[in-house]
């Protein structure tokens, strides 16, 4: 068999082994690569952080996904919740997917264990699962009255009786709706809630959908976006740079620290809060590997084509 031909016919299982090793090795021996922050993620952080400590404003996170995309989206959710808990930002959570609701419980309890002062229904409130058939009615209903539209939290308590609802009436009191999604990039929110009630919408999406958000970022229909593990890593980093130190956001400082210095020290940060950043090392290695695959595959293709041509001429 010719070299070019053997290149073309390489058993796919060898490729699988190389990919697996390219993920495992950098995870065990981290490269300590930097995480650069980008504008769409910085915009989200700035906007959410602007309501730190306010009683009349909250953010709403819509967990619009199931466990299949958790490795990409869960670190975003953890970073967002952590940001809210550190900076005393009122937080609401909701899911229109049955398998999204337990993810809310998981994420809230995972972060809450580090914040004993944070109380359910006072500092945050989980609306829980609402059937998909009610998505549009609830999205629209919250524009008039959140307590009336959602009615109960995940434990079945009436929203209007909860302390967190004091000074919270409708979207006027929602700083931003964050949809964390593996299927639509905020579509229902920017189609129904934003034009009618003017609420700001942001998204955390799987990287597959990240490129599709740009037209909506330009028009302002989406205020910002986190794309895949990279977006999660950026948000994790911003929380560490600013919220953890009690600092207000500044773009200059974000760029100075995130871009200028060496990798921000991860040693004192619990594993769950740096998961995305650790993963980005392996991500970088595999990206280079895939590019190599493309190049080698194409070399094999062109060599093979040339050999075929020569054979034909002879």
């Amino acid at each position: 068999m010719r070299f070019s031909e053997s290149l073309q016919k390489l058993d796919r299982r060898y490729i699988y082994i190389v990919v697996a090793l390219a993920v495992i090795i950098p995870l065990i021996f981290p490269l300590g690569l930097k995480t650069y922050t980008t504008t769409p993620v910085e915009d989200l952080y700035r906007h959410i952080d602007a309501i730190a400590g306010r009683d009349d404003k909250a953010i709403l996170i819509d967990f619009y996904h199931d466990p299949s995309v958790m490795p990409e989206l869960y670190p975003m959710e953890i970073a967002l919740i952590r940001h809210c808990f550190i900076r005393k930002i009122k937080l609401f959570t909701i899911s229109f997917w049955p398998t999204g609701a337990p993810i809310i419980e998981m994420a809230l309890s995972e972060v809450k264990e580090d914040f004993p002062d944070i109380k359910a229904n006072v500092d945050y409130c989980n609306f829980g699962f609402k059937p998909n058939a009610l998505t549009i009615p609830i999205i629209l209903g919250m524009g008039d009255d959140i307590a009336k539209a959602v009615e109960t939290n995940s434990e079945g308590s009436k929203l209007e009786d909860l302390p967190i609802m004091k000074n919270i009436k409708n979207y006027d009191n929602i700083q931003i709706v964050m949809q964390i999604s593996g299927s639509t990039s905020g579509y229902l929110w920017y189609t129904y809630a934003r034009p009618r009630f003017g609420v700001d919408v942001g998204v955390g999406v799987t990287a597959v959908m990240a490129a599709d958000t740009y037209p909506f970022l330009q028009t302002g229909q989406l205020l910002g976006s986190m794309g895949g593990l990279k977006g999660a890593a950026e948000y994790e980093k911003l929380v560490d740079i600013f919220a953890m130190k009690g600092l207000d956001y500044s773009k200059k400082k974000a760029r100075d620290i995130a871009w200028g210095s060496k990798q921000y020290s991860l040693s004192n940060i619990p594993y769950k809060y740096k998961k995305a950043r650790i993963g980005m090392d392996a991500q970088a290695v595999v990206h280079v590997l895939i590019i190599l695959f493309i190049v080698i595959g194409n070399i094999g293709y062109f060599l093979d084509k040339r050999a075929e041509k020569r054979k034909y001429v002879k």
Partner: peptide, 17 residues
């Protein structure tokens, strides 16, 4: 759920090659 979708990483690498 997460592993089922992660299989696609191998397929996309194979497709790239």
């Amino acid at each position: 759920g997460a592993t089922m979708f992660s299989l696609l990483a191998f397929y996309i690498a194979s497709a790239a090659y």
